[in-house]
């Protein structure tokens, strides 16, 4: 119980965010209308993905310093979970874009950036499959992971700010927080973000523990 308080907290926060997000008051805005509620579901996915990729990079750095198999497993499972959150972020985003911008995939730098970032992490997984030897695989994929992370940050958070973008907070647009969110929305939004990050980390640790057990069973004592 003492160790799992954050998992329960994460679940409670998501439950609150879903109920509060679907029932709570939202400002009446042109074009957006009720779809503004998607901000409680779309944005937290990306925050969770970024957190998981950050965890992955930290464990890759740890692996290079220590050479422990556990760190490599944590890095790869963080990427695996992160890709799922990325896919959910893309899907919720496409639903939203279909209604507000008229098509599911408008030519927007942030959309394209996230698609390319996904390719980068898929390439990481392909690289892992290409290498047979375990230690070599762990080391080389850790190096690629660290190499790719800053590029991903540039792609998702710096380039869209420079160019014209449909997303708020890019290309001189105001951020969503200043423009469209009012004070009723803020608590729900932050609850959703923290809740999804906690649950994402939980899923990642679960997968990591499964991998540890598999690893132990495969070993010859």
């Amino acid at each position: 119980m003492r160790k799992s308080w954050w998992k329960i907290l994460g679940l409670l926060m998501i439950a609150t965010a879903i109920i509060g997000g679907l029932l709570g008051p939202v400002p009446v805005l042109p074009i957006l209308h009720e779809t503004i509620r998607n901000v409680y579901f779309h944005v937290p996915m990306w925050f969770t993905m970024l957190t998981l990729y950050l965890i992955s990079v930290i464990y890759s750095i740890k692996y290079l310093n220590s050479g422990k198999v556990e760190h490599d497993l944590m890095a790869v499972e963080a990427v695996n979970t992160g890709i799922v959150f990325c896919a959910m972020g893309l899907l919720t985003g496409m639903l939203w874009a279909n209604i507000t911008w008229g098509e599911p995939w408008p030519n927007d730098p942030k959309l394209n950036g996230s698609a390319i970032a996904t390719l980068m992490y898929l390439a990481y997984l392909v690289l892992r499959n290409a290498l047979e030897e375990e230690q070599k695989r762990a080391k080389i994929s850790a190096i690629y992971n660290i190499f790719a992370f800053p590029v991903m940050v540039v792609l998702l958070y710096i380039l869209p700010k420079l160019t014209d973008s449909l997303h708020p907070g890019s290309g001189g647009n105001g951020t969503f927080g200043d423009l469209d969110m009012n004070n009723n929305m803020r608590p729900v939004f932050y609850t959703a973000v923290i809740g999804w990050i906690l649950v994402g980390t939980w899923i990642c640790t679960l997968r990591y523990r499964v991998r540890l057990i598999e690893n132990k069973r495969n070993q010859i004592d």
């Binding site: 730098p109 950036g113 390319i116 970032a117 390719l119 980068m120 390439a123 392909v126 690289l127 290409a130 290498l131 070599k136 080389i140 190096i143 690629y144 190499f147 790719a148 590029v151 540039v154 792609l155 380039l159 420079l162």
Partner: peptide, 26 residues
């Protein structure tokens, strides 16, 4: 990185394209 894996040319393309795209866009 790709020299350390066996099949060099494929790995090179897979690994480098996503990394080079932001540069290419700019």
């Amino acid at each position: 990185i790709s020299a350390k894996t066996g099949n060099n040319s494929t790995m090179m393309a897979i690994l480098s394209f996503p990394v080079i795209i932001p540069l290419l866009i700019v």
